[in-house]
């Protein structure tokens, strides 16, 4: 079958996602260094704890900004009502012959998008609070550390699944990050409604 390519992401969408991704990786590595005493050695990757934290702070700004940019780039697809459900998502993970009747984004991707947006928002706000800890007052500030930690774990789990499904789990998806295109077969299988209506 000759490869027919379908456009799925614009250059600016891809660039935003790359910046978001690289900033997340830097944040995760510099952040893990202060997550637990057993991970403290990771701060050595960035030339010691002072530099590691400074990098974490300023990379955080980039991550926070791209969280909004990416959400609004995809807002229409994220908020569009689909015909697929959470059950479809779980089933399509386990059954290769089943394809959810998904639009441009399937139910799972929408869930991920909302969590990435809300999680990025919480990480950014709690992160600023940790950067300037004497602003909020003691009681509230103590919760900021807990929330930053809890949402970090949540984001790591979501991103782990996101990374897997975007690469090894669904071959062909990685092309979106590289060229912004997917094959017609990919579009038809993974996003049949989108393929039928918009492509």
């Amino acid at each position: 079958m000759a490869e027919i390519l379908v456009k799925r992401a614009s250059p600016i969408q891809r660039l935003s996602h790359w910046i978001h991704m690289v900033s997340f990786i830097i944040l995760a590595l510099t952040g893990l260094g202060l997550y637990a005493r057993s991970f403290f050695g990771l701060t050595g990757l960035f030339g010691g704890v002072d530099m590691s934290r400074t990098i974490h702070h300023y990379t955080g700004i980039v991550f926070f900004a791209t969280t909004f940019i990416i959400f609004f780039q995809w807002a229409q697809a994220i908020t569009a009502r689909g015909e697929d459900s959470l059950v479809d998502v779980v089933r399509s993970y386990l059954d290769h012959d089943f394809h959810a009747p998904a639009g441009k984004l399937n139910f799972g991707q929408k869930m991920f998008a909302w969590f990435a947006f809300f999680g990025g928002l919480v990480m950014g706000l709690t992160g600023f609070a940790m950067w300037f800890p004497f602003v909020l007052g003691r009681g509230l500030q103590q919760w900021m550390y807990f929330l930053h930690n809890a949402f970090f774990v949540g984001l790591m789990l979501f991103i782990l699944v996101h990374l897997y499904l975007g690469t090894f789990g669904n071959p062909g998806s990685w092309r979106i990050m590289v060229s912004g295109t997917v094959t017609k077969a990919w579009a038809k299988a993974h996003h049949p409604k989108w393929d039928a209506e918009e492509v």
């Binding site: 993970y93 789990g169 669904n170 071959p171 077969a185 990919w186 993974h190």
Partner: peptide, 11 residues
């Protein structure tokens, strides 16, 4: 998942 279910290879 990769080992037991495997990737969903469309192409």
């Amino acid at each position: 998942h990769y080992s037991y279910v495997g990737p969903k290879d469309i192409e």
